[in-house]
């Protein structure tokens, strides 16, 4: 199937994009938890739990 089957292409300099994406995903997870009424108590006290990575 060619060399590419064994040597996966890599995106260089991805760390900035990865950090930005992770931050965005965490922000979205907080938003979804609030929308679903999960962790409301923690949110009210300003001690929101860390987002779940399941």
């Amino acid at each position: 199937m060619g060399l590419a089957t064994f040597v996966a292409p890599r995106t260089r300099g991805w760390s900035g994009a990865r950090a930005a994406i992770e931050e965005y995903v965490e922000e979205q997870q907080r938003h979804h938890r609030r929308a679903l009424g999960l962790g409301q108590q923690a949110a009210a006290t300003g001690e929101e739990r860390e987002p779940m990575h399941d």
Partner: peptide, 11 residues
């Protein structure tokens, strides 16, 4: 979203 992420990603 694209603006924010692109800026943080540095492009």
């Amino acid at each position: 979203v694209v603006g924010r992420l692109s800026e943080k990603a540095g492009h």
